[in-house]
Amino acid sequence: MGRYVIRRLLQMIPVFIGSTFLIFVMVYALGDPVAALFGDRAPDPATAAQIRRDLYLDHPLWQQYLHYMGQIFQGNFGTAFDGESVLSLMAGAWPLTLRLTIVAIVVEAVVGVVLGLLSGLRRGRTVDSGVLVLTLIVVSVPTFVSGYVLQYLFGVRWNVVPPSVSPGAPLNQLILPGIVLALVSLAYVTRLTRTSVAENHRADYVRTATAKGLPRHTVVVRHLLRNSLIPVVTFIGTDIGALMGGAIVTERIFNIHGVGYQLYQGIVRQNSPTVVGFVTVLVIVFLLANLLVDLLYAVLDPRIRYA
């Protein structure tokens, strides 16, 4: 197991370098950050050159990249052009997004698994068809639509929650955004659980469990669900990274100054250090989440052994 983890960590290095380099190229090479800084005005050439030197922009791209990565690993993510350090932006943004993601994951896991289990156990009945229709609707409505609609209904119309989240983003205010963020994944978790439960429902070991005289809930939870959740847990694990990155829309709608919000700001303002910095951390989160999933997989399914 230990060797497997080390090997996986080593394998992550090229992936990390590849993906961050791509992002770096796209952000720095395809735009002119200095021009962007000055907006519509044409910059004074001397000043521009000075800034380029300061920002290490006068070196070849690969040197810029190496320099940048070197800085990152010393904990220096650079400064956004407005002078605020990217690190302090992160310190403000990541906790918010993390909290939002946790709310979303909990919603997606709990509601998705319960709905999936119910419809999986009652295949073809009303519950099943109802859930199917519901999940189809949820999947086909884009987040910005469902987000604004729910915000309008709960925040404006019925006044249950404040329509936009206050700066501290207390947990209770994150519930609605969390649900919005989770919706699409929730539908997937439901479908996945349903399929998995339906598939395992007729499995021999479930019949054995019944033949042992176990009460129905033990058969369902300990034997059926325990097996059926293996692919679901995998999906939820890989979804962590997707949710964090995908929170852009949700965070915009509910005015949460998290990772998605900062990324969005960074992009519209062509604020390269912000974009590259945040995305780099996102890449790391993605990779670690995937590793976690693989390890979890071995815990959940003893037939899988990593050598």
Binding site: A203, D204, Y205, R222
Partner: peptide, 8 residues
């Protein structure tokens, strides 16, 4: 197949 694969 009759024994549960994930329980000892």
């Amino acid at each position: 197949s009759a024994l549960n694969p994930v329980l000892s």
